[in-house]
Amino acid sequence: MRLLLADDQTLVRQGLLRLLSLAPDVEVVAEAADGEEALTLARRLRPDLLLLDVRMPQLDGLGVLRTLRAEGDETPVVLLSTFSDENAALSGLRLGAHSYLLKDVHFDDLLHTLQAALNGEPQVYTSVPRHLASEVNDSKLWDLTAREHEILRLMAGGYSNKQIALVVDLQEGTVKNHVSSILLKLGVHDRTRAVLKALEMGLL
């Protein structure tokens, strides 16, 4: 994947750049230190994916996303933030970003999320309260991926995240992200309600 990386913190940006260079399927085609630069590079280079810091000078990550969408650019966007900001996460969700992740995310989970965004899989938001997410009227949020259906069935069987990770051969953190995505899409607060809701919807 051809990726554009934008973060105003030099050490963070360079650290991510080094890590991403180790991933065989990722090519960082450009890096930006602020939102205006990110927007200019995105328009010129047309990357496959944008990894944007939420808080940047000149133009923040949400501003970049909002401008691109207004221009009809549907390039997948993953937002990164140092802080868990419910309002920013919900704004990103409404603007169509694929994910809102904190910068302490495990690198394997970040790579998984980037690939999921590139593949057009539904959104992953671990920082949006379920009651707020349910206010977003987007039918795509109700569509579970094949992997999420599999994990949902295991949840219904009483499996823990650790047990699910062993069964489906994923990192436990990745399973946690999938579970969070399932709860978000079903508009519920916990695993038990997710299973009950899935039964009501005929998903199980």
Rank of each mutant, 00 (worst) to 15 (best):
Leu16Tyr: 03
Val78Ser: 11
Leu93Met: 14
Gln163Thr: 13
Ser21Ala: 13
Ser91Met: 03
Leu204Ile: 14
Gly157Phe: 06
Asp53Val: 02
Ser181Val: 07
Asp34Ile: 08
Lys162Glu: 14
Leu166Pro: 09
Leu154Gly: 11
Ala97Asp: 12
Met201Asp: 00
Leu95Val: 15
Pro24Leu: 01
Ala88Tyr: 03
Leu196Ile: 08
Glu150Pro: 06
Val167Glu: 13
Thr67Arg: 07
Ser99Val: 04
Leu90Phe: 10
Thr113Asp: 06
Ala194Lys: 12
Glu148Asn: 03
Leu144Pro: 02
Val124Trp: 02
Glu71Gln: 10
His98Asn: 04
Leu51Lys: 07
Arg147Leu: 03
Gln115Asn: 06
Val175Leu: 04
Arg130His: 15
Leu170Gly: 00
Asp169Tyr: 07
Asp48Gln: 11
Ala198Tyr: 11
Met1Asn: 14
Leu50Lys: 06
Ala30Ser: 06
Leu19Arg: 09
Leu90Asn: 06
Glu121Lys: 12
Gln9Thr: 08
Leu90Ile: 00
Ile151Glu: 10
Ala165His: 03
Arg153Glu: 10
Tyr100Lys: 10
Gly15Asp: 08
Gly63Glu: 13
Thr10Lys: 15
Ala116Val: 04
Leu199Arg: 15
Ile151Phe: 04
Leu102Asn: 07
Ala32Pro: 14
Arg46Lys: 15
Val64Gly: 02
Leu68Gln: 01
Ala38Phe: 04
Pro24Gly: 00
Met56Pro: 05
Leu62Arg: 05
Ala146Trp: 03
Asn161Ile: 06
Leu93Trp: 08
Gly92Cys: 08
Val175Asn: 12
Leu20Asp: 10
Arg55Gly: 01
Leu186Gln: 02
Ser181Tyr: 02
Val26Ile: 13
Gln14Lys: 02
Leu102His: 10
Ser99Trp: 09
Val12Cys: 10
Ile182Glu: 05
Leu114Met: 14
Asp85Arg: 15
Lys197Glu: 05
Ile151His: 12
Pro47Ser: 01
His112Ile: 05
Ser81Ile: 11
Ser21Asn: 04
Thr82Ile: 08
Leu3Thr: 14
Leu19Phe: 08
Arg2Gln: 10
Asp7His: 03
Leu52Glu: 03
Gln58Lys: 11
Ile164Asn: 08
Val195Ile: 14
